[in-house]
Design a protein around this nucleic acid. Structure first.
Length: 478
RNA sequence: GUCCCCAUCGUCUAGGGGUUAGGACAUCGCCCUUUCAAGGCGACAACACGGGUUCGAAUCCCGUUGGGGAUACCA
């Protein structure tokens, strides 16, 4: 999208409302804001839009900050709580009223509802008709004196409102779709529109990157910025993130909040990278990029203008790529909380590291990796009855396996090489293929049919563990 | 309903008047291999449709269809 923009420092903000966990859509918005700030210099401001006290929650405010910090996002200013700036917002309205740019509206909720219903019946969108816009001042004064409640509405200019959106292009909204909207509710509280614009002006915001759901609010905001005498920032409206069903991302298709991905064992670098690429690309074929690599080439003009479907499979692939870049020691540290959660604690650190080493190419997330580890340390393993039956059906298996168990028990050194050598020697001696022994051995020791090299597996489980599991399995074979 | 936005492989995307329409994920195959992965190599796979404009359209314009968003004294 070609939009005229002056290079140089920016002042951007991420302004979530604390009504829930940080959603991946919000996280992506925050990422683009931060990327623009890092690319151009300036400041990235965190502002919590908690004007709706009913739905806001201080715990969520905390959670959002934690989630942003976990993702590696760093804000330069804030967090500012919008609720603490209400007086400032009211002041702004007083100024607008004094300047004749806003007016008091005594329309009741009932009147408005009736008009809305009527508009609906006609098949058109409801727009406040401006009933009180040019009301007789004496009447207004009388009602005020009588203590009647009123809302304050902005006088829209009555002309088309245009702005250049750096992701959508040139936007034009004719006056017919814009009405005199509410700035201050009749209970004296500011609406979102008022708070946002006043705060953006006060904080010197130069670029607003936000979700597409705000696109149709933008002409309202442009009018307010102008009425307030503030500089209108540049806008960029991001398309939404969709679920597999191409509808708005919902719980139905799995995780939607940053917290949930964290709990799944996704690395923050991976989620950051994945989200950044869901709606932006550097223009070449690079995909695995660090934040610094991205901010070095980030331009808002390359933000995509069509919605993207969230692809969990690709996120997992990307997570695997980042997991691969971690040393085993680092991986063990990252695994800590997950191991604690599944109760695998207090195990020998050397054996744990070896187990991680063996399992790491087989797991795409920290959680998956953690869950593959107890098998190495458990007292016993479970066997699938169908598989037990399979080996029972061949009467030559049990005696051979028993002999192998005996030789393993007698091994002077319980090493991978020795285990390997002993098995192959026995197979050779009895004229069977190594695989004939390897498969039941794997099952006996791990309870699984797949996994790391069987000798690594047996060595790690150890002499006692292997003997115990082999014994139990042999007992099942009868 | 009305207004607005969007439309390249199944998915994320590059490209943007003349390309064998490129990459990645997923899928499938082969190699490696005691198994499962990982890794290597390869295959399949896209310009929604209809009209224009043009010597030439996936690319520009209009329409249709489809999807999404907004329609609050919520944010």
């Amino acid at each position: 999208m070609t939009v005229i923009d002056t290079p140089g420092p920016v002042r951007v903000r991420f302004a979530p409302s604390p009504t829930g966990f940080l959603h991946v859509g919000g996280a992506r918005t925050a990422i683009y804001n931060e990327l623009l700030r890092r690319a151009r210099g300036g400041a990235f401001i965190l502002r919590i839009e908690d004007t709706d006290r009913e739905r806001s929650d201080d715990r969520m405010t905390r959670q959002i900050q934690d989630a942003l910090a976990w993702l590696g996002l760093e804000w330069d200013e804030g967090p500012f709580l919008q609720s603490e700036r209400i007086e400032r917002h009211r002041e702004a309205v007083a100024g607008l009223l004094a300047a004749g740019k806003a007016y008091r509206c005594f329309a009741t909720q009932e009147e408005l509802d009736a008009a809305r219903k009527e508009a609906e019946a006609r098949g058109s969108a409801f727009l406040y008709p401006g009933t009180w816009r040019d009301a007789d001042p004496a009447e207004v004064a009388r009602r005020m004196a009588a203590g009647e409640p009123f809302a304050v509405r902005l006088k829209m200019p009555g002309t088309a409102i245009t702005f250049d959106d750096f992701v959508r292009g040139h936007m034009v909204f004719p006056p017919e779709v814009l009405d005199d909207y509410v700035l201050l509710r009749s209970d004296g509280t500011p609406t979102y529109h008022l708070s946002v614009c006043v705060d953006d002006i006060d904080m010197g915001i130069t670029h607003v990157i936000r979700g597409e759901d705000h696109l149709s609010n933008t002409p309202k905001h442009v009018a307010l910025f102008q009425a307030l005498g503030g500089k209108v920032p540049m806008f960029g409206h991001l398309p939404l993130i969709l679920g597999q069903d191409k509808k708005r991302l919902s719980k139905r298709f799995g995780a939607t909040s940053v917290e949930e991905f964290r709990a799944q064992g996704i690395l923050p670098q991976a989620l950051y990278n994945y989200l950044a690429l869901l709606g932006w690309s550097p223009g070449d074929d690079r995909e695995l990029m660090t934040r610094d690599e991205m901010s070095a080439v980030f331009t808002p003009e390359r933000l995509n203008d069509s919605a993207a479907v969230f692809d969990q499979a690709k996120l997992l692939w990307m997570n695997f790529q980042y997991l691969t870049r971690l040393s085993t020691a680092e991986l063990v540290v990252e695994l800590g909380p997950f191991l604690a959660e599944i109760g695998l604690t207090g195990v020998d650190p050397v054996r744990l590291a070896t187990a991680v080493e063996l399992q790491r190419p087989r797991a795409q997330s920290l959680r998956e990796l953690a869950e593959s580890l107890p098998m190495y340390f458990a007292e016993r393993v479970e066997y699938d009855p169908a598989l037990v039956e399979k080996y029972k059906a061949d009467p030559t298996v049990a005696p051979l396996l028993a002999e192998l168990a005996a030789r393993y028990a007698a091994l002077p050194e319980f090493s991978v090489a020795a285990l390997d050598e002993a098995l192959r020697h026995l197979a050779n001696e009895r004229g069977v293929k190594a695989g004939f022994l390897i498969h039941p051995l794997r099952l006996a020791v791990s309870g699984l049919t797949g996994g790391p090299g069987v000798f690594d597996l047996v060595a790690l489980v150890g002499r006692e563990g292997a003997a115990r599991r082999l014994g139990e399995f042999l007992a099942l074979l009868g």
